[in-house]
Design a protein around this nucleic acid. Structure first.
Lengths: 401, 401
DNA sequence: ATGTCGGCCTGTCGCCGACAA
DNA sequence: TTGTCGGCGACAGGCCGACAT
């Protein structure tokens, strides 16, 4: 007998420790439209500073006096050996594990492989995402399925039934199965006739809500995998500081550990492992080398220049916001001189800009007026590799072993 | 409206981030009878190896190839500047945060202060602890209070009531209040008469069980603080690997971080912070310097010697087990030569010894035949400080800055 | 088209007594 | 003394219809 009614609907799933086959499209759908993972095998730039920001956000610790770390440059050019997609066992929040290997200067200068330039967005097409209402999460009723969503994503109902209904079986990010009764109400000629028609998930829904501890404002997300299975993801609302400070290691030690691990790997050209939490990190701190080089060496920006930048909307689509560059300087001149991490100070056009960061990185923005050096920075140019390698990276004198 | 009925009984408590005033006796009751914390201000010995073992246990990662860390000795003599007691917000498991400062060789040799020698056990007297049965945790009924426990710990009931009952208000480790109806059944001359008498917690109990996610085998624990408030702690059963691998930082980086933080502190004689999880760690890795010196320098042991060692029983009392020393060697001669951490290989007398470690540290055991060097290692000797400092510690040449 | 609520049925919770280990 | 279970009342869970936005 289970102590509470939670989760007893789940079927046994061979959750063999590291789940390899987490569906990529579901992961990306949960991560949001702006998150892209670099390709395995490509070269990337890793920013300890950005990694540090993520750890700080996850441990609720301000990054007041980050210990600077001897001989660790503000950016590491690395080979990306492995990327695996995961979801937190407790919260279902998605994260990625990456294995990186710092490259020596020669390897950094190798010409690009074609694979390194494309960053395909793997957003699934046949999916829907709904932010839960108070009614959806209350124990009083079920889940109201938006009509277009139900018609686009759910299998067609048998309208000869009264009312039309079916059993949906969806797998969450861990492969657990959840069963829902899907009905279409207000159809037919019984007492229902004339009522507004609607799709609902009834039986099974509340078990899911309480097992996942969903509250109004969180989102759920349905899509399909290649194997014709319905998948079910979660995106939690940005409630302030959900992540609790770990009692395993002090946040200071974590920061030092992150830096020391990177420094050790850089010194020995060996591999190290990081976790990337798209919904916790303010920005991606592992970006394709090609993207970095293009932004830093082939795009000229200056104070006063106008730019656009993409943001995710409430409804998890994308929107462009406009702004003006107000300054260019190191975010932390003492510990991380000559870093390009968030080196651009900006002002935003819209008054609702309270949420948007006052500092961004070069590769996050799209300048409206550019003085291209070489080559022109427009997308069609990306279709073939640049004919030359990249110049020596300033600020990374680490590899003189 | 709360999404589920869980936890809505809790009253608002000014949980001002770091709860300073966690009751010491409750903490020790939850930690178990064998756990003692060194006194603030005293000198202690910190073992990176043991710390590493705790992190490994918490992250479910084997310590296969621990990266050795340059210039970090296997033990650090530190001043203990601060100890605070905490409980995990999610699981209520107790842990301690300690601030340590490595000492230079001169400070290590200072004579002992009287306060450094005593390690008072702060087990509360007026408390009881019960391991929950299937009935206790099922939704079908309440909590059966052992008779002696109820009579010793709970306030006396008014037996003029029919049935005798009262409302108990208990505070958990975070200060949240939980209300229980406490009744004494089978008393009186109604239909109850002649029934076996018993104490029960009824209304309020199941809310607590589901909020804390207690299952059969976990224990609850009632005691009182100095302010005449009933306190309520939890000790979860040793279910294998409850702690999930954190997705914040790779376990490799955590291990490196722990070592680097200690090494940095040792090199600069500055403070660092660690967490100690009594129920996760196989052994205490911060022990009083006096205890260490006594065990390592003033006790002679040899292979074949018999010894006793204390263990916690199922019923959370203590028991002595006997064994024989079968070897003395470094646990990890490569990375941690000359460490005393778990340097004693032992065999246990009882065949139920499958659970007991094959390696222990000197200060954990009590040799039955001793050849005391100086002074004799018996408790009465501890009542005054040793007249001399301690010899130079081998294996800790770190402080030659 | 869909969020919320009143009505009402039904399943489970949870209190009591009983019995056995 | 105390773990477990059958009985059964009360209440919350959850499905339906209604109405408003």
């Amino acid at each position: 007998l289970s102590p509470s009614g939670l989760g007893n609907q789940q079927q046994d799933v061979q959750d063999t420790e590291e789940q390899i086959c987490l569906n990529s499209e579901l992961w990306h759908a949960c991560a949001g439209p702006l998150v892209s993972l670099p390709l395995v095998g490509s070269r990337v730039v890793y920013f300890p500073q950005g990694h540090s920001e993520q750890v700080a956000a996850s441990t609720n610790k301000e990054i007041d006096s980050l210990p600077s770390y001897q001989s660790l440059p503000p950016q590491l050019v690395c080979q990306l050996h492995n990327v695996t997609m995961h979801a937190d066992k407790e919260t279902d929040e998605v994260y990625a594990q990456m294995t990186l290997q710092p490259l020596n200067p020669q390897e950094q200068k190798d010409p690009y492989l074609p694979a390194e330039l494309g960053t395909p967005s793997k957003q699934p097409t046949n999916y829907f995402c709904k932010t839960l209402t108070a009614s959806d999460t209350s124990t009083h009723g079920g889940f109201s399925v938006p009509r277009r969503a139900a018609e686009k994503v759910f299998p067609p109902l048998d309208f000869s039934q009264q009312p039309p209904c079916q059993e949906l079986i969806a797998r969450d990010l861990h492969g657990n199965e959840w069963k829902f009764r899907h009905i279409f109400r207000g159809y037919g000629h019984g007492s229902d006739a004339g009522q507004p028609k609607r799709h609902l998930l009834t039986t099974g829904w509340s078990v899911f809500v309480s097992a996942k501890r969903l509250v109004a404002g969180d989102s759920v997300l349905f899509t399909w995998n290649d194997n014709n299975q319905l998948l079910l993801g979660i995106r939690r609302a940005n409630r302030p500081q959900t992540v609790l400070p770990s009692s395993v290691l002090s946040s200071d030690s974590m920061h030092i550990g992150l830096l020391a691990a990177a420094a050790h790997a850089a010194a020995t050209n060996s591999r190290f492992t990081i976790f990337y939490n798209p919904r916790a990190s303010p920005s991606e701190f592992v970006i394709p080398l090609a993207k970095y080089v293009k932004a830093v060496y082939h795009t000229r920006i200056s104070v006063g220049m106008r730019f656009r930048m993409l943001f995710e909307t409430e409804e998890s689509s994308v929107r462009r916001y406009m702004g003006t560059i107000t300054g260019i300087s190191d975010l932390d001149p003492v510990n991380w001189p000559n870093s390009h991490w968030r080196s651009v100070k900006v002002g935003w056009d819209e008054s609702t800009a309270g949420q948007r960061q006052p500092r961004v990185s070069l590769w996050e923005i799209e300048p409206l007026t550019t003085f291209p050096m070489y080559p022109p920075p427009f997308p069609f140019r990306l279709k073939r590799p640049w004919p030359t390698g990249l110049p020596s990276l300033p600020g990374s004198p680490a590899f003189q072993s």
